[in-house]
Structure formats: C-alpha cells, structure tokens
C-alpha cells in the first residue's frame, strides 16, 4: 500500500511538473539528480549544499525545526550577525519570550528590535502591525517554543495576508516553527538536529558550520502566480 501511495505521489508530482513547469523552474528535476544525492525523508526533494537561509525582500520563508536542539537559535544568531554586518535592523517577534541576549553578545543585539510576546496570538498581532507598517526590512517570527496547537489554530488566510503584506512592503519575513505551518511560504526549510554531541568549548562558528537547513519548498514568485 505504501509503495502504491508513493508511486501515485511521484506520478502526481510529475504531472504537476509537466502542467506547471514554471513553478518548478528553480528546482532540478528528480531525474537530473545524481544517485548519491541525499533526500529528506519527508519531502523527497534534493538537498542542495551549501544551503543558507537568508532574508529575501517581499518573501515569506518558513524554517521548520521539528525537534529541540535543531539550531533555530543558532540560525537566529546567524541572521543577527548578517544584519549587523550589513548595518541592517533585524526585528525579532519572539513568540514565547525565549531569546537570550547573553548568548549573542551586545554587538549583535545593538541594532535589533526585540518584541517579547507572551503567546502566539500577541506575536501574530505584532507581526501584522509591523508588516502593515512596512518600514522594517527584516522580521523574524519565532514560534519555536509556542505549543503547536496554539499556532495551528490560526486560519490559513492569516498567512496569506502576511504574504500579501510582505510582498506589498518588500519586507522579508522568516517564520520559525516546529512543523510546516505557513501555507503561503515562498520557501520552506527544515533544520535537522546538529550532528554529534555538543562540545561546550566549541566556538559559535563551529556550531554554525554544523547547521544544515534542508529546502522543502522553493516557490518562485512567478511560479506561485502562475500556479
């Protein structure tokens, strides 16, 4: 039965690829992959190394960290470092008030705007306000520690509205969740648990190098509009 379902899924994807080629223009075809290319269990999409998660103006990206310790805070530190290096302001909408400034140091935090929300509803409201404003170029909505039923309760049209606002204002929005949730995401990445046991003496860069985001969805604007 499982094989039959898998075959049907593959056939459906092939059909979709033929029907909507532009929606799959950014991804290499499955047939083009070398046999040794690893694939993620859930997505069957190829891992393209090196993959970096970065803000893209006017796009929503979702980073799924299914298990604790996958490095979502580490990724946040990377984004903070890039924003600081580029002289940009990063806005963190912290859904569970879990950000630890001591873990990143004053230099990475000096330009950030940190919103310490009590629950996911506050976080969504704050994000909505910021997206409508359109002044802040990079926003991270961190729902990593929020209970999944709480964030699942939001209607899908909320995410579509976020996407429309994001595209309108040219704001890059990155949502960190524990399970795929953002139906309107332009891109979706999964974070896998960091390989190896934690070495407390390692530098932050050593940890960052072990961060391995896996693309799950990569939908171009053009493809999304046509599809």
């Amino acid at each position: 039965m499982e094989n039959l379902a898998a075959h049907r899924a593959i056939a459906l994807r092939a059909l979709l690829r033929e029907r909507f080629p532009s929606a799959h223009a950014d991804l290499p075809g499955l047939a083009d992959l070398p046999p040794s290319t690893p694939t993620t269990a859930g997505s069957r999409l190829p891992v393209q190394a090196p993959v970096t998660v970065a803000f893209s103006p006017g796009e929503i990206q979702e980073v799924v960290a299914e298990r604790p310790g996958c490095g979502s805070a580490l990724l946040l530190g990377e984004l903070l470092a890039r924003a600081e290096a580029g002289g940009r302001t990063l806005t963190l909408v912290d859904g569970k008030d879990s950000f630890d400034p001591d873990s990143f140091g004053p230099s990475l935090c000096r330009r950030m705007l940190w919103l310490r929300c009590r629950d996911a509803e506050q976080a969504m409201q704050a994000t909505d306000l910021l997206l409508r404003d359109g002044n802040l170029p990079e926003i991270v909505l961190d729902l990593q520690l929020n209970p999944f039923p709480e964030i699942r309760s939001f209607a899908p049209n909320v995410w579509h509205r976020f996407r429309a606002l994001s595209e309108q204002a040219g704001t890059g929005l990155l949502v960190i969740t524990t399970s795929p949730l953002v139906v309107s995401a332009h891109r979706r990445f999964a974070l896998r648990p960091l390989a190896g046991a934690p070495d407390w003496e390692s530098t932050r860069n050593d940890f960052s190098e072990r961060l391995s985001p896996v693309p799950l969805r990569q939908r171009s604007l053009r493809g999304a509009m046509q599809g």
Partner: peptide, 11 residues
C-alpha cells in the same frame, strides 16, 4: 565572543 550553542530561555 560567545561560545557554545545559544540558549533559548524559559521565562
């Protein structure tokens, strides 16, 4: 320069 992985605090 912070070392080790960053912490997510429970507050």
């Amino acid at each position: 320069v912070p070392s080790g992985p960053p912490l997510r605090r429970f507050r």
